[in-house]
Amino acid sequence: MLRADALEAIYPDIAEHVVVTIMGAVAAELYTLGHRHNFFYLEHAMGLASSMGLGIALALPERKVVVVDGDGSLLMNLGTLSTMARYKPGNLLHVVFDNESLLSVGGFPTATATGADLAGVARACGVPRVVEADTPDALAVSVRGALASDTLTTIVSKVEAVGPKSFHMDLPLLENRFQFKRALEQMRAG
């Protein structure tokens, strides 16, 4: 499965929720599908999109928060799975696209290419719902199920190590940051 197709399949289901993505291909592909002020693209600090999502989920318990993570990022902060599982915010959905590679920096293989099993790690950490979904349709069904479940869910989706031709986004980092904070303020008020 191509990640771009996977994102397209879940876009209608996540568009109204708080979304935090990692940097690189994921950010550019989601942005290209249609930027919204409730989307935040963490363009550095690898591994921390899930920690940010946890902070938002705890601060805004009445809203759904979707983190779009990757294998390279998650491997840099595996402890995040144990922390998320410890608090189990039911409004947090953690989607991990596993392309078994550090695509944005030369395509070198990550440890998932040699057998590290992120879904298995999530289960072993105590994440209450862990799903593997490797087609766009299966992913969309899993996302809908997770959002309806009010249970912390990690979905791991294997994708091809293919990214967009350009990572350019016409969105300065701070513009995204302030837009996003305003969008969250409106969600809190609404």
Binding site: L48, S51, M52, G53, L54, G55, A59, F180, L184
Partner: peptide, 15 residues
């Protein structure tokens, strides 16, 4: 490291 992400999320969510 996680604490920095959690506090960033909390700030953006107004807490």
């Amino acid at each position: 490291e996680e604490a920095i992400g959690i506090s960033a999320g909390a700030h953006l969510a107004g807490v």
